[in-house]
Write a protein that binds this DNA or RNA. Structure first.
Length: 271
DNA sequence: AGACAGACCTGTGAGC
DNA sequence: TGCTCACAGGTCTGTC
């Protein structure tokens, strides 16, 4: 599920409720999600204060006074704040009881998400070292993308979804940004010129910023920290619109699998 | 090294 | 109604 805007929305919603709170108790309801949930973490977590929460790539970083918690929401994960009297739902795998009585719950039906604990900043940074630059940073520009793409034969859509190049762009926003830039998803990345990369970067930033402003995209089960959906899905031009008329030229939207992922584009608007 | 397929999971909707 | 199948927002690993 969550691409950068959904993670950003989650972090924004969690800041106020959890920053400065102390972890009173932690429940692991499984031994593992994607990776093992180690019982030894429980002692570290109990009594820890949450100093800050932030996002890096599609990851959520919680800085505690004794450690760092790193969350990935995978495809169907969500983190939400609930009252103590709200019943645990199916697929609530982790519950963190906070001072003040609220509970932070990690919900993830498909269990592609994960939670990791690091006891030093170096270990945390090491685990983040393979990620590329942030798409909303000034460093992400057309020249960067153009330079990284030289000699690459892979489809440009797969290229911009490569987290070691630029982080946070997933299947939905890759399709949307390529549509807005007028670039076909299957075009080899190395064959695209600087001018078109300038345009693509502009549209990646625009699509992500607009999605953040709308609280992300909810196709099925994304919900933010307050259990509310996002509203960006009503602004989608191509994603999930196979055979429907292009909103610019009425040509039926085409679908194609690239790198195992459904890709949507307009044969007339995207070349 | 780069590109691709397959694996990891459960839920949902379509088609029979 | 109930079965089977394909597919879903993301990584990670193995293979060619």
């Amino acid at each position: 599920m969550p691409e950068l805007p959904e993670v950003e929305t989650t972090v924004a919603g969690l800041k106020h409720p959890i920053q400065g709170k102390t972890i009173v108790a932690v429940d692991f309801h499984r031994d593992a999600i994607r990776y093992p949930l180690k019982r030894s973490w429980l002692d570290t977590l109990r009594g820890s204060r949450i100093l800050s929460i932030s996002r890096r790539a599609k990851l959520i970083v919680m800085e505690l006074d004794k450690a760092y918690l790193l969350w990935h929401l995978g495809m169907t994960g969500s983190l939400r704040i609930s009252r103590a009297d709200e019943a645990k739902r199916k697929h609530d795998h982790v519950e963190i009881h906070l001072s003040g009585g609220k509970i932070l719950r990690f919900h993830d039906p498909r269990r592609f998400g994960y939670l990791k604990l690091f006891t030093s900043k170096d270990a945390l940074l090491e685990s983040l070292s393979n990620y590329g630059i942030e798409p909303l940073s000034a460093a992400f520009d057309g020249d960067y993308l153009c330079q990284r793409s030289r000699h690459k034969k892979q489809p440009v859509k797969n290229f911009i979804m490569d987290q070691s190049v630029v982080v946070g762009v997933g299947n939905i926003y890759a399709c949307e940004a390529l549509f807005l830039a007028g670039i076909r998803p299957q075009t080899p990345a190395g064959k695209i010129g600087r001018q078109r990369y300038l345009c693509l970067v502009k549209n990646i930033k625009a699509v992500l910023e607009k999605a953040i402003a709308q609280g992300g995209t909810t196709l099925k089960d994304f919900e933010n920290a307050e259990a509310k959906p996002g509203y960006f899905q009503q602004f989608l031009y191509v994603y999930g619109r196979e055979s429907l008329p292009c909103l610019h030229c009425q040509t039926p939207i085409a679908a194609k699998r690239l790198g195992g992922r459904s890709s949507f584009y307009c044969k007339k608007c995207q070349r």
